[in-house]
Amino acid sequence: MNLFRLAGDMSHLFSIVLILLKIYTSKSCAGLSMKTQELYTLVFVTRYLDLFYSYVSLYNTVMKLIFLASSFGILWYMRYHKQVKQTYDREQDTFRHYILVVPCAVLALIVNNELSVTEVLWTFSIYLEAVAILPQLVLLQRTKNVDNLTGQYIFFLGAYRALYILNWIYRYWTEPKYRQYLVWAAGLVQTGLYADFFYYYLKSWQAGEKLRLP
């Protein structure tokens, strides 16, 4: 495993720690999109089905279990925790799941490496992950009040895929058999979706202010 990949994973993990920290310490999930959290949970469930039939490393297994458990944990807080659930922006978080889930499912059925149940589900998870942040970005645009932790959460989530791109470039040159065109295309789309956010995030950071969206 190269340093880009490790840094990417740590950035991903850190973004989840931030969100749990925000919810736990402030007992609030204001500004967080439950739709995005549900989509990520669906991503992890469909991708990590391979926990049942393939083993790569202890590191991978532990990380997969952490991602699964934490995404269900976040959802539990937002849905059932007495105080946290009252802070959820239900009226603003109106993005419909099917707008993303259906096209990703159709695309996974058409463009995949192999037409098998596990492979199509895996491909679906790759496509869905690329766009799962959209409800969160829409919510951000609507509410405009972005607290520091939410801003940092989205920043590290975006940084994770950007670091993965560096990891893919590195592996492309060092491992001749490593060619994952589907993943690369989806990863580029995913990182691209953050471009706008990154721009405003860095601008606010440079000015020493809280994140402000136009």
């Binding site: 391979d50 790569v56 991602f67 060619r179 993943v183």
Partner: peptide, 10 residues
Amino acid sequence: DSLASTKDEL
């Protein structure tokens, strides 16, 4: 050997 057989990323 499928191109995507190495699913060693997260």
